[in-house]
Design a protein around this nucleic acid. Structure first.
Length: 586
RNA sequence: GGGGGCGUAGCGCAAUUGGUUAGCGCACCAGACUGUCGAUCUGGUGGUUGCGGGUUCGAGUCCCGUCGCCCUCGCCA
């Protein structure tokens, strides 16, 4: 094999006259009898090779995806046959010799930029799919992101430190992937949901600033934006407060955008409290590239003649909120029904609506409301004639969730979103605790190692107003990072365990090793983790995580390339001291 | 665990109310052609309609079950 002197994307007009060697895959052939053309492809591009069929017999019978070596002279193409759609379109390589390095079977699908092939087939033949430029460009982009991130964090004094994959299983949070131990039958390792405790221990070790681009694994159901194994940019810093973490992340992202897109991000990013997010947008990861903010009409609803509103307004925890869609009175009944379906999917029993027409308010709800109530609602909504008002009356969380989705639905379908913007937003002052209705107890909303703002509450207190030093970074309505300032004093950590009903005995069994570390001079510390896959997806405008991961899993957690998971054989079970339970009878 | 969508040739799709031998484009095979670049032209091969069962004189089409893929709710500290 002659080694390549250039890639298939590298030759330009200035190379005319030089003799080169190219190695690559046959993308296509066009045989004209006496002369034929070969498009030779590698990751870098496509270069046209011209073959005089009589003089260069090696090129006869080449088929798509054959791997070949071409030696020849670079020549400027005749002016009328240049291809302006390709960077290499001004030149061609006149073949002197063509060697087949390896033949290819006819591939199950064509390797083209615009693919319409079923995704499961592409996943089964992922190595062929990855030859497509759209996909290989994503993978290259991801590499350059990691490079930029490493440079940036290294410049801020961070050390990249690996943490173990086989770790101790942790209670709460996502379901752990479990790895049975052969040397200790009946005992298991867990795969990390994140390196959380290890990075905190690294702070106790005095490592000062740690980061890692690491795999995290969670045994939960998948989505287009959720894989069972995913990658985080994980970092932790000592002797810092929230602002120090924000500064590092903002600077890292500014560098990232500059390196990869050339765009200048403006920082610091805006900050919004969790409470304000919920009030104005209905969720804690708002897309702030458009308006349509929620308004509250609980007071008006309480005294109105519409029982659905007044009953909810009078109930404990009930909330009546609305959104005003400018010029929405023109919406068809079908469009409104589709909007209601969105609200129902997210828990609302229905979607009340009023069209403000020149002939007065219209809609099934309008007749239950007095003209005065409608006027007060319209004023609060900032609505004018021609607008559409929609309302949800439900428990606060449901109202927020449903209207947040309705807002997004309107944003997308009415094309209200300025997609040229990068709307970063820090969401701060999250609640520390949430009430778990199933288990009838308080639990940590993020994790139990997050510090609270102000003094620790006492056992038996209402914990719903306790705020945490907990923050998320949101980009265009997507949560891309989450972190906190941690607890560093063992007595505070014990207090949190007590508050969430985590017994001393259990705390000792599960976290004793970590609590002991806090006993030996743990510095104040905090950190954050960014979802790398989601960040790549957003920066590339990809629709699925699968388009930015080389070897992704399907929605049911399988790998179609390798056909995993697959049954373990008897010997493997025996080594582990395990046996399968019989399937329960149907 | 729930809801929705899809599954027909290697790939992408079509097939009227349940009715003739399941078609079309690309790919593939053979041939022609010295300037193509989604080459073109001529001819050709290729089907367990995901799988199993049922209804029917007759099923790609209707019914039941099952498998796979995609989206989604729950879930994901």
């Amino acid at each position: 094999m002659k080694k390549r002197t250039h890639t298939c994307g590298g030759l330009r007009g200035g190379d005319a006259g030089s003799v080169v060697v190219l190695n690559g895959w046959v993308a296509s052939t066009r045989d004209h009898g006496g002369v034929s053309f070969i498009d030779l492809r590698d990751r870098h591009g496509i270069t046209q090779v011209v073959v005089d069929s009589a003089a260069v017999p090696g090129a006869v019978g080449l088929r798509s995806e054959d791997v070949v070596c071409v030696e020849g002279e670079v020549r400027l193409r005749p002016a009328e046959s240049r291809n302006p759609n390709r960077p290499t379109g001004d030149v061609e390589v006149v073949a002197r010799g063509v060697t087949v390095l390896n033949r290819s079977k006819t591939p199950p699908f064509e390797i083209t930029d615009k693919t319409t092939v079923r995704e499961d087939l592409r996943l089964e033949y992922r190595y062929l799919d990855l030859r497509r430029k759209a996909l290989s460009d994503n993978i290259e982009f991801r590499h350059r992101m990691c490079h930029s991130i490493r440079n940036s964090l290294s410049g801020h004094g961070f050390l990249e430190i690996e943490t173990p994959l086989l770790i101790k299983t942790t209670p709460e949070g996502a379901r752990d992937f479990i790895v049975p131990s052969r040397l200790h039958p009946g005992e298991v390792y867990a795969l990390p949901q994140s390196p959380q405790l290890f990075k905190q221990v690294l702070m106790v070790s005095g490592m000062d600033r740690y980061f890692q681009i690491c795999k995290c694994l969670r045994d939960e159901d998948l989505r287009a934006d959720r894989q069972p194994e995913f990658t985080q940019i994980d970092l932790e810093m000592s002797f810092v407060d929230q602002e120090d973490v924000f500064f590092v992340v903002e600077d890292m992202l500014k560098t990232l955008w500059k390196d990869l897109t050339g765009a200048a991000l403006s920082a610091p990013f805006p900050r919004l409290s969790y409470d304000e997010c919920m009030r104005r947008f209905g969720n804690d990861k708002p897309d702030v590239r458009f308006g349509l903010e929620l308004f509250d009409i609980g007071d008006i609803a309480a005294g109105c003649g519409f029982k659905v509103f007044s009953d909810v307004a009078a109930s404990k925890g009930g909330s009546v909120k609305g959104i005003c869609l400018p010029d929405g009175a023109a919406l068809s009944r079908k469009e409104i029904d589709e909007t209601e379906a969105v609200a129902k999917t997210h828990g609302a029993k229905g979607l009340a609506w009023i069209k403000l027409t020149p002939d007065g308010p219209q809609g099934p709800v309008a007749k239950f409301l007095s003209p005065n109530d409608v006027a007060r609602i319209a004023e609060r909504a900032g609505a004018k004639t021609g607008d559409l008002l929609v309302f949800v009356a439900a428990p606060f969380e449901t109202t927020c969730a449903a209207l947040a989705q309705v807002r997004l639905h309107f944003g997308r379908t009415r094309k209200l979103i300025d997609t040229s913007r990068n709307a970063f937003l820090w969401v701060v002052d999250f609640p520390m605790f949430g009430w778990n209705e199933d288990d009838k107890r308080w639990e940590a909303k993020h994790h139990m190692f997050t510090s609270t703002k102000g003094a620790m509450p006492n056992l038996g207190d209402d914990l719903s107003d306790v705020k945490a030093n907990l923050y998320d970074l949101v980009l265009n309505g997507n949560e891309i990072a989450s972190g906190s300032i941690r607890i560093h004093r063992p007595e505070d950590q014990q207090k949190v365990f007590d508050l969430v009903g985590f017994s001393r005995a259990e705390a000792e069994t599960k976290f004793g090793w970590f609590l002991r570390a806090l006993d030996y001079g743990a510095p104040p510390h905090g950190g954050i983790a960014l979802g790398l896959d989601r960040l790549v997806m957003l920066m590339r405008g990809a629709e699925s995580l699968r388009d930015v991961i080389a070897f992704p899993k399907t929605a049911s957690g399988t790998c179609l390339l390798t056909t995993s998971p697959s049954p373990a054989d008897d010997r493997q079970w025996a080594d582990l001291g395990l046996q399968l339970r019989p399937k329960p009878a149907p």
